[in-house]
Design a protein around this nucleic acid. Structure first.
Lengths: 157, 157
DNA sequence: ATAAGATATGATATAACATAACACCATAAT
DNA sequence: ATTATGGTGTTATGTTATATCATATCTTAT
């Protein structure tokens, strides 16, 4: 759970404003749901939590649209390998967005977002370019077991 | 389309035999469907092609089970980011299976399986271990545009 | 202030991907 | 020959995602 949700929301408003798009209340609420979760959530789980947190049941179609918006504005990431969504860990950071790399724990479902080392990415790109391929999304998703689950031998879910 | 399907099938039989499991006719046929496709296929697409190639309609449930088997025996890969399946490019190779890396063209859907450079993987692992995380599946899926589509400006699908 | 247009959301239906649970049959092991 | 195992079929259902059209709300020009 992020330290300072208010500050992140504030930053999100600013980012949207400078992109000329609107962070509506519902979009903001969806972002808040994600910010309040320690694990990434599916669109359907967002519907449930939205209802609990804000007392309103949104159609899943709307959630998908809002997620698309938030992803577009780089406030949310989609984990393709898990079909789940999570808030970007760097909304309130000053530094530039780099290639995100997600370490997904297959036991507890938690995800750590770390920035991939510049030179590793450069090498990856180089070895890829030699095949004529051009990278697009630039996002790595790696599965494994997090420190906490290793220490506690939590069973896989 | 692989050069020599017969040889790959032969190797697959040998691999299964030495693992003490059986490559049944239907499992072999599913593998043949994948070997005959230039792009990865979904389970439902395999049902369709199986029918065309072998004149029999298998329930998708059975296809999923056969895919599980083939994946277990490392004859087939699942592309998690695309929910599609493809035959391993290295069934008939002598060299050891390394960390596979898939370059997925978002325009034509073709996929190139290349082995990630040893030292890049080592570096990735090192930077990950510093977070306490332990890697599991070790498979990279990278999206972009293949050489052919760049040259021909094929529209995205 | 209001109409026209644009953007955001709601509602309904359906497509696409995946698994659970149980039945049946063939073959292998005893 | 009997039993155990593994492979496949069948049915039902769960999960993720998109298409389409309707409605609401917001903006902006007049």
């Amino acid at each position: 759970m992020p330290d300072d949700i208010d500050r992140i929301i504030q930053k999100s408003y600013e980012a949207c404003a400078s992109a000329g798009v609107k962070l509506t209340d519902k979009r903001k609420n969806v972002l808040m749901v994600l910010l309040g979760s320690s694990t990434p959530l599916s669109a359907y789980e967002i519907v449930e939590r939205y209802k609990i947190q804000f007392g309103e049941t949104l159609p899943v179609m709307s959630i998908y649209r809002m997620l698309d918006f938030l992803i577009q504005e780089k406030l949310v990431h989609k984990l393709e390998t898990a079909s789940q969504y999570m808030s970007c860990a760097h909304i309130a950071c000053e530094h530039q967005h780099e290639t995100p790399q997600f370490l997904i724990c297959d036991r507890c479902g938690s995800v750590k977002e770390i920035a991939i080392k510049k030179h590793i990415m450069t090498e990856l790109e180089r070895s890829i370019q030699s095949t004529g391929f051009t990278l697009a999304h630039q996002q790595l998703e790696l599965h494994g077991v997090c420190k906490h689950c290793q220490d506690n031998s939590v069973p896989a879910n």
